[in-house]
């Protein structure tokens, strides 16, 4: 399910992990990511790293409110600028982008819903 990796793990230079854990029952899913990309694409991540709080110290962030598939979509968007939006995920994308203040995505998803 991890969309943005090379064959060779060594060459990916991941330095940050995003863990999706919606409930205690389910097994958590981990996305391997890059701080430099996340912080340049999102004010939330920029502040998260600048604050030097727990997430920065441990190099991982646990998200509880969203499904693995949504997080994968959003990460893909942050990395590539592209989003695969459809009737099935539009509202969740809107909620995610509203919470984390991703302006462009708020616009795309709310436009999609209106139509």
């Amino acid at each position: 399910k991890n969309l943005f990796i090379n064959e060779n793990q060594e060459e990916n230079y991941f330095d940050f992990e995003i863990i999706c854990q919606q409930t205690q029952k389910k097994k958590p899913f981990s996305f391997k990511t890059h701080k430099s990309i996340l912080s340049s694409r999102s004010q939330y991540f920029k502040s998260l790293f600048n604050s030097k709080m727990k997430e920065y110290q441990e190099n991982k962030l646990v998200l509880q409110d969203f499904s693995t598939s949504i997080i994968a979509l959003i990460l893909k968007y942050l990395y590539s600028g592209k989003i695969e939006i459809n009737l099935g995920n539009a509202i969740e994308i809107l909620i995610f982008s509203s919470k984390y203040l991703i302006e462009e995505l708020i616009e795309i998803s709310s436009k999609f819903i209106k139509n």
Partner: peptide, 15 residues
């Protein structure tokens, strides 16, 4: 003493 706080937790609370 910020280093032990969870940024996401605080952000989520304010949200």
């Amino acid at each position: 003493n910020a280093s032990t706080l969870s940024f996401e937790e605080l952000y989520r609370s304010s949200y």
